[in-house]
Design a protein around this nucleic acid. Structure first.
Lengths: 167, 167
DNA sequence: CAACTGTAGTTGAGAGCTCATCTATTCCGC
DNA sequence: GCGGAATAGATGAGCTCTCAACTACAGTTG
């Protein structure tokens, strides 16, 4: 009844075979997953922005950089790690540059390439944001789940990643 | 090692108590969930846009309207159902109106209110999009999961919704 | 080493979202 | 039934993301 695919299935095959509609069980599972994912992502993003001024997307850029030695990374690699398009990352780095948290540097080995480098200010901003973010994740995710549910969450995520992931 | 909270915890409590950092297990679970959720939402959205020109956000508006009798709903209620802000929905409905898929109508019971009404063209667009979307959901989600995993997904989603959900 | 092809990254226009603000209407207390 | 508070929704500026060029360099082939 409450589903995104609850349109009455047409009976005459209209091109590509009969759609494989979801049954009631599947719809409830799908809806629950979709709503909870949207709400959780939204909540984490908002809390991070409210407390630190950094969106989750930008936070991930800073984190990725902070984890490399030298705190620098090629733009393309950084885009991949952040599940971001090159264009999106390029814009994002430009804005992080304006804040003084990242700077660009030509890549020595490849004249086409650019290295994004995390500045000390950027690292400091990340250090300030991390405790806030981890607390959000605890509050809205782990504190709500039993150990078995956490295991199931991991299993689910890894299963889907094997299908969806580039890595 | 590969985490968004893997910054070295400072030992001196610096204001709000020691952050409850994630351990390795938790980080893997969190990463797997986050990446898979982002990739799945992105994939579904793109496939829907590519095949039908409707983004998932707009699709949900059409679906919500199609499920009511009279195919109409108050703006606020529609916003709630779509996990959307009022402003966002107002903009969205304006664009759907331009396409001729939705029209606005003053609410009889409340002079302040507006009813969003799904037009026949809008319903037809939805009917065309639904099989495409359900096939995406099947391919990238249900086809990848065992029945036990589907049950776990539902359980997870519902648990999180009890905490996050307004409803 | 000249021409072609592929790769890395940037840019700008346009679409969608957020936030603050604004208008119109209803509800409530007196 | 009047004045103030609350509610419904719209609007516009600013930011982010996407998509389609576009520039610049690298690698490859003759």
């Amino acid at each position: 009844m409450t589903s995104d695919v609850s349109l009455a299935p047409r009976d005459a095959g209209s091109g590509a075979g009969e759609p494989r509609w979801l049954d009631a069980e599947e719809q409830q599972a799908w809806r629950a997953w979709l709503y909870s994912a949207q709400l959780l992502l939204d909540r984490l993003d908002r809390e991070l922005i409210h407390a630190t001024g950094i969106s989750h997307a930008y936070y991930e850029v800073l984190v990725a950089l902070s984890e490399t030695e030298g705190r620098m990374m090629r733009m393309s690699e950084l885009a991949d790690r952040c599940l971001s398009s090159r264009s999106r990352l390029s814009h994002a780095v430009s804005r992080l540059e304006e804040r003084g948290w990242v700077r660009r540097q030509v890549c020595p080995e490849d004249g086409r390439g650019q290295l994004a480098v995390l500045t000390d200010d950027g690292f400091a901003a990340l250090e300030a944001a991390a405790p806030v973010h981890v607390e959000s994740v605890r509050t809205h995710l782990f504190d709500q789940l039993s150990p078995e549910q956490v295991a199931a969450m991991r299993d689910l995520g890894e299963t889907l990643l094997r299908h969806l992931g580039p890595r």
